[in-house]
Design a protein around this nucleic acid. Sequence first.
RNA 1: GCUCGGGUGGUGGAAUUGGUAGACACGUUGGACUUAAAAUCCAAUGAGCAGUAAUGUUCGUGCGGGUUCAAGUCCCGCCCCGAGUACCA
Length: 932
Amino acid sequence: MQYDFRNIEKKWQKFWKESGIYNVSIDSSKKKFYVLDMFPYPSGAGLHVGHPLGYIASDIYSRYKRHKGFNVLHPQGYDSFGLPAEQYAIQTGQHPQKTTEENINRYREQLDRMGFSFDWSRELRTSEKNYYKWTQWMFTLLFDSWYDKKLKKARSIQDLKEGFLKKGSDYVIGYDREFANNEWVDFNDHEKEDILQEFRIAYISETDVNWCPKLGTVLANDEVIDGLSQRGGYEVVRKKMRQWSIRISEYSERLLSGLEIIDWPDPLKEIQRNWIGKSKGAMIKFSVENSEDSIEVFSTRPDTIFGATFITLAPEHDLVSKITTSNQENDVNNYIEISSKKSERDRISNVKTISGCFTGSYAIHPFTGNKMPIWISDYVIATYGTGAVMAVPCGDQRDFLFSKHFDLPIKNIFKDISIEDSAYESKENFLIDNSEFLNNLNFNEAFELSCEKLNEIASGNKTINFKLRDAVFSRQRFWGEPIPIYYVNDLPKAIEIESLPLELPYVKNYLPTENGDPPLGNADKWAWDVKNKKVVSNKLINNKTIFRLELNTMPGWAGSSWYFNRYMDPNNEESFASKESLEYWREVDIYLGGSEHATGHLLYSRFWQMFLFDLGLVPTEIYAKKLINQGMILGDSALVNRQIETGEYISAELTENHRVQKLNVDVSIVNSNNELNIDQFKSWQPEFKNAEFIMNKVFKVEREVQKMSKSKFNVVNPDDICDNYGADTLRLYEMFLGPIEQSKPWNTNGISGVYNFLNKVWRLFFNDNELVISESDPDKESLKALHGTIKKINEDIESFSFNTCVSALMILVNKLNEIKCHSRTVLEDLIVLLSPFAPHISEELWNVLGHDNSIADEEYPVHNPKYLIETEKKYPVSVNGKLKYQIVLPLGISQEKVENILKNDQSVIEIINDREIKKIIFVPNKIINIVC
RNA sequence: GCUCGGGUGGUGGAAUUGGUAGACACGUUGGACUUAAAAUCCAAUGAGCAGUAAUGUUCGUGCGGGUUCAAGUCCCGCCCCGAGUACCA
């Protein structure tokens, strides 16, 4: 008899739901363990087989940790604000709330079928007002805080105001404006706010942003890929806009050094390091001839300063208009206009073409006093460094090409190195020449000395520069958290906590308004009544108590930057989480998710936690100790070839000499031999109804691995697998597919293997319908097999190597079947071993053996080394062409035993390694090596 | 271009981190059960050579070198694939 997974799985899912056995609470008698999945965005397409990969892994780990006696927090929720729901709303007029809700229900249904042990009592949704109340509150904290460079932490803006009152601008370091304390007192509100805005962590400013006209909103740097929007792939252009930003750049150093102490995958850390982009160099000031102004440049090569022959500014640089001479004005304006029209994408694709324009002005070299022409060119990026570079053609290939192109002077400062054909960019193997006091120095010496000298003449200093930009925080969108700010005479004011949440208003439609305002501009009732602390009609706006509200909403990453803290205490009305719960659960122990969030969510959330930590609101600066990136499951797409001229469909092996176009077809109408079911194809979509085919016997399709997506018809729904094989099989199979971090195409070729395995497990307990369990003591052989497996599985689960766990279980079950072991003690341990992977069948069998499933988890079996000692194995080995033997002793052998062997064997010649002994290799009459 | 990963049977993938390469599974082939098929079970399965056979033997982890008694694993030089990033001064 086969095991009846349909009824078994339904039965236990119902039991888990009704008994709520996976709901946890604070229990100081137990050690806590927090396992978290990146919460999903509930899209309309539902889950496909790729989504659960990480959830299955985290579920296995959670169940395992529970067996180990930990109090495991394993929650799930939804990142439910976002663009797709809003796009759908624009098309259909339905409120995003409604579609989001529908999608969530569908997600929940699918998740429930897979037997996850989530604590659903802690479910959260970022779009719920009891959640976004706290997101908004945290925004007001960001607004009311500044970053103290001296203490290297965020502090209340109140402290800054008091500091200015006492010491003026001396209170802070690294600020380019100077004012005394009495001047501060005399500043008016606007002047004060202008200064404060340069310190607030959430601040408003006129910035260059990535504007996506198609989406009608700005995008953060990480949301733009290759000059196109991440969502939708639309063109992105640069535009100046008044925007909220988050001063994440202040945390660059901490975000970078924090990587050292977290156990995250190296590739992911590397991505974050590159994104933060720390570089050591110098700030160098060049005065401009016949002008008060000076140009500051950042250079990583101050050692090459004597090789600098001209200056290049970004076209957007502030000084350009000031220093351009009248006879160059036309050319310069022309150039600026052309380059501003270029989209990000054009700029990237035109990397190789050299363009630029002379401004007519000259800078003065700080040491030689030479005149250096000032040019503008769009190879200089306005947002990196100072938006200006000193061009050293002999040491930088771009400067070199630029000089050649515009016939600018090139000065070689490298001794005995030819720069005929290209610049010498290496920092090694050279001595400096033609550089006064830097002559005959190497890179390091020249670097230090040049910085010193620059400092002496007050023309520069050593600095560290970061690539990380402040994050744009405004979105011209409806379906996001409203920014809780109102404007009094254009001065932003935060809404205080008692009045939050600031709920999304009713709008007639979700598109921008006629005068280009964000969708919230469509709301009639969107003004803040300060006196009564509530939202009122726009018509009531006056300049005393009722003010206009911010129209932008927050980006998607706002809500996801702190949700892991909310799970600790999700229903708290008084605070985002109680002190007690924060102290108990502290941080995530294992975080599972994809590496595609490396420069988005995973960076922002680290920042956000650091900020909360600075304010003393959370107990740890690091919110996730260990992170595992699960790979993506890709779709194995099927494509039919259509002949372009005739429109006939050609079987894949016959396409030679035909001009064809490939069309994705539904993978469910293609069998595993790549043969298309023609009848199903014809009825699949109306356009194929009268399709003509060119083929021999069968019609073959082509296969291609693509990202799983609805539009490619390669989506496999986990429900189908659950229907046909059961959730346990799906869980085991997804784990069996390969290492968790690896991306792999989905195929069901091997699924019968794990399905058979579960049947074999079942048959260990049942002969037909009869339970066959022996109560007598187990034999040595089965104990040996069992304890070996226990050891392996414990180790492999800890290292997230679930595919080898499944193999180990298969080997064990094959073995037990072979030796016909029906011993209760062995089988009980087997059930517990199996239960994290296949919880349904395990619960059933546990119950079959007469246990009460409603009591706490059975402890995970502990291996007994006694059964692991294997007999010594003798292997032939060739040493210098002579046949000798090596004896390999098993793992865990005692020191005494080894010493005994050594004593009894006279022929030992050397022991190469004397660390913990695991294996010994013998050659006849001589031990030649001990391998550890 | 730069920075990370990675190349192992027909396929997905193991290999105790330097110690019998190919575990486990799929697939294939043969067999058992069956009137038959499905399902299930058993056996074989890296390639070559010799042998009726047990077995023996050679070659085998992208390519070429090296270290070592011993290399998929370590070192040097190439080739290919994937990911990230990109005019970053």
